[in-house]
Design a protein around this nucleic acid. Structure first.
Length: 257
DNA sequence: ATGGTTGGCATCCAA
């Protein structure tokens, strides 16, 4: 089973690139983040006419996640389903081919110490509680998405410059570690070590992609029964090279299931 | 020390 994740930064801007990528790579599941449109504006028909099933959870302007598959997408759940908290569209879960896929767009956090940073930490804590309440770590679960955290010094182009800033802060490391400790393995790091393997290059930094000034913030995590069956995990930089690219590119993992 | 870009939508917010 091949599972991919991509922060598209607007599905309407990236529709042609995504459909072409799907045709070439034929993943069993593609998880999208930052679709940036309400559900009635999502180009659902364009996917369906190419033979892809789509499950979406979107809102106007911001956030938005989706799952794309050739297979039936079963048991879809959207968000935390917790009326105590206002919901934004950052989480969608479903079962595809016997594997539970959880797709998240973790809040960016904006600036350390801000309300949005606090929201990010709380959001990650709520996600940990969601896994504990809905699932067990001996189930085959793959958790993918834009986690907005570069968890080790090798995961950002200048760790000393960014340590303590948003995306590379000890409070974020702790929240991510709590999620991983529940029962996940970082599938990419099963296959690749060291610095320079990035999935996001900031538009704001001139020639960030050409100079590989990036971050590894898009991750594929799997529970043990799936992780031991992983056969590859790669970053496909081609999507970041084209005309009008997203600022992220795709991560693709394959499992012998 | 600081700025640089992009997308959606409304003339700014979020990233």
């Amino acid at each position: 089973m091949k599972i991919a994740t991509l922060n598209v930064n607007s599905i309407r801007m990236r529709l042609d690139a995504v459909l072409e990528w799907l045709a070439v790579h034929e993943p069993d599941v593609l998880a999208l983040q930052e679709t940036k449109c309400a559900d009635d504006k999502f180009p659902r028909f364009e996917f369906e006419e190419m033979g892809w099933n789509v499950e979406i959870y979107g809102q106007k302007s911001y956030n938005g996640v989706a799952l794309v598959s050739r297979h039936s997408i079963l048991g879809v759940r959207r968000g935390f389903e917790d009326p105590r908290f206002p919901e934004d569209c950052r989480l969608i879960e479903a079962s595809v081919g016997g594997v539970t896929v959880v797709n998240t767009y973790v809040p960016n956090g904006t600036v350390v110490g801000s309300d949005k940073f606090d929201y990010k930490l709380r959001w990650m804590e709520r996600l940990r509680a969601l896994f504990a309440s809905r699932h067990r770590p001996d189930e085959p679960i793959v958790w993918v998405g834009d986690m907005n955290v570069a968890p080790t010094p090798d995961d950002v182009w200048d760790s000393r410059r960014h340590l303590g800033k948003v995306g590379h802060h000890p409070d974020e490391f702790a929240r991510l570690a709590a999620l991983v400790d529940w029962g996940f393995e970082d599938v990419f790091r099963r296959f690749h070590q060291g610095p320079g393997h990035y999935t996001f290059w900031d538009y704001v930094i001139p020639r960030s992609f050409e100079n590989n000034l990036g971050w590894r913030i898009d991750h594929v995590y799997a529970t043990a029964p799936l992780a031991v069956r992983a056969t590859s995990c790669t970053i496909d930089r081609t999507l970041r090279q084209g005309e009008k690219p997203s600022d992220h590119t795709a991560v693709v993992a394959e499992f012998d299931v």
